[in-house]
Nucleic acid binder design. Structure first.
Length: 110
DNA sequence: GGTGTGACAATGG
DNA sequence: GCCATTGCCACAC
């Protein structure tokens, strides 16, 4: 098992995030068994742009529900627009009702 | 093989 | 309660 599976797992989880739902880097990291590797999860998403396949990274935010990496989506509020397109309210780069929209992979993917 | 980094998270002042 | 620092793990150079 190569460690690179970590990246693939991250991509797999992010792709399985249902529309209108969001999750956190820590939740994904925790599901992968490395609760402290939340940073690596975010990094994987960063590299996801380089993979060529589109990853709904806009559904992945930090613990505060804030769109920390929106700038990586390009310019303006691309990330914000994507979220709003799915019915997610974003105010001040932060997801509204984040607690309700939170999607835990551990509960859905087991 | 060692160093640096990074879209986090938790802790301390 | 907000700002600064540390820890952490996996990848790139």
């Amino acid at each position: 098992m190569e460690d690179r599976d970590f990246f693939e797992k991250v991509y797999a989880i992010v792709r399985q995030i249902p529309p209108g739902r969001v999750t956190t880097y820590g939740a994904i990291a925790r599901y992968l068994g490395s609760e402290r590797s939340a940073r690596v999860v975010g990094w994987a998403l960063n590299q996801s742009f380089h993979t060529g396949s589109f990853i709904p990274a806009h559904r992945v935010v930090n613990r505060q529900g804030m769109l920390t990496g929106k700038h990586y989506f390009g310019f303006g509020d691309t990330m914000k627009q994507l979220l709003e397109n799915e019915g997610i309210e974003v105010v001040n780069d932060r997801i509204v009702r984040f607690g309700e929209l939170f999607w835990d992979p551990a509960e859905n993917l087991s």
